[in-house]
Amino acid sequence: SWVSVFPSPEALASSHLAEVLVRWKGLGYNRRALALRNAAARILSEFGGRVPQAEADLRSLPGVGAYTARAVRAFAFGLPGVVIETNIRTVFLFYFFPDREKVPDRELEPLVEATLLREDPRTWYYALMDYGAALKKREPNPGRRSASYSRQSRFEGSHRQVRAAILHALSGRGPLSPRDLGEAVAEEVGPYADAPDFGERLSRAAEELAAEGFLELGDDIVGLKT
């Protein structure tokens, strides 16, 4: 598992990007794995290898915003604060906004704050998350009434699939020539590689990944950054 392979910031920060991406597969967007690795390096260099507790310090780390910082404080350190994720949001929309659409989180925040079990936020939020998941199974999903609700687009044939296929090929096979990389990606995306704009999409995805810190692009070779 992820935690057994990378049990500490030091272990993650010192790992090769290829191994990080292989271990991350199936856990979410690849950019989050890169952000975690970069955050681990910052934790080593600026916080003595210990995850900081202050929200401002957490938000200074790569890829960490308000939600992640507050979630870390609540779940890792048992510190009170407003945490709103999809299942918690579902509970509050179901009970407090049964007839409203496009409800923004700013209207939920005072309610989450007022009902928070401050002496044990970790257990309280776990309970809310479980309850929200159960509500979705028995009710029309209340989360759809949130202003932040959106349905994720189809993965197959998408730009996201091309990006993921590039990273999968390079993490599994090592550096490749542009031609070999194109063939590897085409093999993974299947019939979607027959689209007339596939080459353009492949180039655009590779350039994006390089700009984000994943790849090193050469004239004759493409590889993951170390």
Rank of each mutant, 00 (worst) to 15 (best):
W2E: 05
V5K: 14
P9R: 06
A11C: 12
L12R: 06
L12M: 04
A13Q: 02
S14P: 04
E19N: 12
L21H: 02
R23F: 08
R23G: 01
W24M: 03
K25E: 07
L27R: 14
A33L: 08
L34Y: 01
R37E: 05
A40E: 01
A41F: 03
L44S: 01
G48A: 04
G49R: 06
R50T: 00
P52E: 01
A54W: 02
A56K: 12
S60G: 14
V64K: 07
V64E: 03
Y67I: 06
R70C: 01
R73G: 02
V82Y: 06
V83M: 00
V83N: 04
E85K: 02
R89L: 04
F96M: 03
D99L: 13
R100Y: 00
K102C: 11
K102D: 08
V103M: 01
V103L: 10
D105R: 11
D105K: 05
E107A: 12
L108N: 00
L108M: 03
L116E: 05
E119H: 14
T123F: 14
W124H: 15
A134F: 08
R138G: 01
G143H: 05
G143L: 06
R154L: 15
S158N: 02
S158L: 05
H159S: 13
S171T: 07
P175M: 11
E183G: 01
E183C: 07
E183K: 15
V185I: 08
A186Q: 02
A186K: 02
P191V: 11
A193V: 12
D197G: 08
R201S: 03
R201F: 09
S203Q: 15
S203T: 15
R204V: 09
A205P: 00
A210N: 03
F214P: 03
L215R: 09
G218T: 10
V222H: 07
T226Q: 12
T226F: 12
